[in-house]
């Protein structure tokens, strides 16, 4: 992990209230593994004081991109950045997805900006020779963040304005009906209630599910102890999402212990 002042390459809106920010960092681009995150200071001011944690969305050469909704003071500042502006970035942080192993198909399920870790994960899985399918959901077609580069995408919208009408759990059910659930793992990121519904669905069918959690953090490196998630297995009551996560086997955690960010 590094603390680096990087230069912004691009800031743009890619869907309704969905924004991306790209910067150049050879070290961070090279070191980042699928599912890792960055802790980024919105500006040098004391207000907002803390960094904001974002999953790495895309890596292309030295170009690193994050994706986010504007939900508050910090993200509004990120959206006001322009190419050439400096950015104080700490990362890459967290334990990557546990995506290696013997299985044929990876289904990457995301809701909203939960799409963040999927392109980097999809590329790594494809490099391992896995079949990759993306199921991405949002409330409406206008909120779908599709840059045309997702591997084998299927979409779900609550209003049916794009793809499957309903949520990503329904869309996953439809996929499994068509393709079967053999030799498959699901990786997911999105709102807690989506992960919770998906967890119930996968547990009932014995499908392996790894979830990438989002929560408020201060340091991102384990020194503040501010981001616990309750464990359902093992001998520790809590682990820290920043250093033990953010990617967990769904069966190991008690998701309801984690307050929803949005």
């Amino acid at each position: 992990m590094f603390q680096e002042t990087v230069t912004i390459l691009e800031s743009r809106q890619v869907a309704d209230n969905v924004h991306t920010l790209a910067f150049a960092s050879e070290r961070i681009a090279r070191a980042t593994r699928p599912g890792q995150f960055l802790n980024i200071k919105p500006n040098s001011s004391l207000d907002p004081l803390l960094r904001r944690a974002y999953s790495v969305h895309r890596i292309e050469g030295d170009r690193v991109e994050i994706i986010y909704n504007i939900v508050g003071q910090g993200s509004a500042i990120f959206a006001s950045k322009r190419p050439g502006d400096p950015l104080d970035v700490l990362g890459p942080l967290g334990v990557p997805f546990h995506y290696e192993g013997e299985y044929a198909t990876a289904v990457l399920v995301s809701g909203g900006v939960g799409i963040a870790p999927m392109p980097v994960l999809g590329a790594a899985l494809a490099a391992l020779g896995k079949r990759v399918i993306n199921i991405h959901g949002a409330r409406t077609a206008g909120m779908i963040a599709n840059d045309g580069r997702l591997i084998d995408p299927r979409f779900a919208t609550d209003d049916g304005s794009l793809g499957f009408r309903g949520n990503v759990v329904g869309a996953l059910g439809q996929y499994l009906e068509q393709e079967g659930a053999a030799d498959l793992r699901v990786f997911a990121c999105g709102p807690n209630r989506m992960l919770s519904a998906l967890g119930g669905f996968c547990n009932a069918r014995g499908i392996a599910l790894e979830v990438s959690l989002e929560c408020q953090m201060a340091c991102g490196i384990g020194i503040c102890q501010g981001c616990p998630v309750e464990m359902g297995t093992g001998d520790r009551k809590y682990t820290l999402v920043c250093t033990h996560g953010p990617n967990y086997d769904f069966r190991d955690i008690i998701l309801d212990s984690l307050p929803s960010v949005h």
Partner: peptide, 18 residues
């Protein structure tokens, strides 16, 4: 000691609660 349940931190104006 396990510590307290989440949420353990919150940002405030130029400060934080833990």
């Amino acid at each position: 000691r396990d510590g307290n349940p989440p949420q353990r931190i919150a940002e405030t104006t130029a400060g934080m609660l833990n």
